Simulated assay, not measured.
Amino acid sequence: MTEFTVEERAERPWVGVSTTGELAHWDRVNAHVPRIYAALAAAGGIPEGGPVYQYHRMRTAADPMDVTVSVPVAARIEIGEGFKTGALPAGRYLVTRPEGGPDALKGVHGEMWRWAALQGLEPAIEERADGIHWRARTEQFLTDPQTEPDRTKWAIEVAYLLK
Rank of each mutant, 00 (worst) to 15 (best):
V33I: 15
R76Q: 15
L105R: 09
K106W: 09
M58P: 02
I79C: 07
G80F: 06
G100H: 13
G49F: 11
L118G: 15
V73W: 03
R76E: 15
A41V: 05
A75I: 04
A117Q: 15
A39T: 03
R57L: 13
G100D: 10
P89S: 06
M58A: 12
P98G: 01
V71S: 05
G86W: 07
D103M: 10
M65K: 11
R92F: 00
T68S: 14
G101F: 03
R92I: 00
Q119F: 03
A41K: 14
V71L: 04
Q54C: 12
G101Q: 06
I46R: 14
A104E: 09
R114W: 04
G120Y: 12
G107K: 08
P98A: 11
Q119S: 11
A117S: 14
V67F: 04
H56V: 08
Q54V: 14
Q54N: 08
T60M: 04
R92G: 00
A42G: 13
D66G: 08
A75Q: 15
G91K: 08
A39G: 07
V52H: 01
V71R: 05
A124D: 15
M65P: 02
P102S: 12
L94G: 03
G49R: 08
V71C: 06
G80A: 11
R97D: 13
E111I: 01
G101T: 07
T96P: 01
A43H: 04
L94E: 10
W115Q: 11
E48G: 11
L94K: 07
Q54W: 04
A42W: 08
T68L: 12
G45P: 00
Q54H: 13
S70G: 10
A124M: 03
G80R: 07
D63E: 13
A39S: 11
P98F: 04
E99S: 12
V108Y: 06
V33R: 02
P123Q: 08
G110N: 09
D103P: 00
T96E: 07
G86V: 03
R92D: 03
D103E: 14
E111K: 12
V69K: 04
H56Y: 07
A117D: 14
V67W: 02
K106C: 06
E99F: 04
A116T: 02
P72M: 02
E78R: 10
A104S: 15
P102T: 12
L118P: 05
G101E: 09
G82M: 01
A62K: 14
A39P: 01
D63V: 01
P98M: 04
G82N: 01
R92Q: 06
A90Q: 13
P34K: 10
L88Y: 09
P123I: 01
H32R: 09
G82L: 00
V52T: 05
Y37E: 01
G49V: 02
L118T: 10
L94C: 06
Q54P: 00
P34Q: 07
P102R: 10
V52L: 02
L88F: 09
Y93T: 00
D66F: 01
P72D: 03
A41E: 15
D63S: 11
G101R: 04
E78G: 09
E122T: 15
G45T: 00
Y37H: 04
I79Q: 05
V67L: 14
Y37T: 01
E78A: 13
I77F: 09
T60W: 08
A39C: 05
A39Q: 07
H32E: 14
V71D: 11
P102V: 13
R59F: 05
T96S: 12
L94A: 12
G107M: 08
